[in-house]
């Protein structure tokens, strides 16, 4: 055997890598994302109920209100440098709710401010959240067309 070179089969190496890579602590991660995610939803419900019961809003406006308040809180916590620590703790618990969408827009805006207001802040605002809008709006239009042409 040639002692000069490494002779390792990629399949064997991928198996080795799997064996030597420490796994994520599954149960704690799931638990943390569960309770933080659940709590964020409870907060959203609380804002919605405040809107409908106390401010006499329509259900749709109250739901928008809760989105706006959560987005505002996320922007504030992101700006203060707290949200990334929360996200590190909760994982999907913070990025699956609308807070994650807001954080995905706010964090690049902060980060790329130095690269200018137009191509820095303005363009990078959508660097992570853009695809969400593209595929969300895109798929809803597809559904709308199908609904209008075939179902209705």
């Amino acid at each position: 055997m040639d002692k000069q070179r490494i002779h390792t089969d990629p399949k064997h190496y991928s198996w080795l890598t799997e064996r030597f890579s420490p796994p994520s602590p599954v149960a704690p991660c799931l638990l943390r994302s569960f309770w933080v995610g659940g709590l964020i939803c409870v907060l959203a419900q609380l804002i919605t109920d405040t809107g409908t019961c106390w401010l006499k809003m329509t259900a749709r406006d109250a739901s928008s209100l809760s989105s706006i308040v959560l987005v505002f809180l996320t922007a504030l916590l992101t700006g203060l440098g707290v949200f990334d620590k929360l996200g590190k703790y909760a994982g999907a618990g913070t990025f699956v709710p609308i807070t994650g969408f807001a954080n995905a827009m706010v964090s690049p805006a902060l980060e790329f401010r130095r690269e200018g207001l137009v191509l820095g802040l303005g363009a990078k605002l959508f660097s992570i959240a853009g695809p969400v809008l593209v595929y969300g709006v895109g798929s809803s239009v597809v559904y709308g067309l199908i609904y209008a042409l075939f179902i209705r």
Binding site: S21, P22, S24, T78, D84, G87, K88, F95, P108, E111
Partner: peptide
């Protein structure tokens, strides 16, 4: 910021 995500983006890092 060049290779991964913005600093204030809240994600978990893999143990590796």
């Amino acid at each position: 910021r060049q290779y991964r995500y913005p600093l204030e983006f809240g994600t978990q890092r893999s143990p590796t």
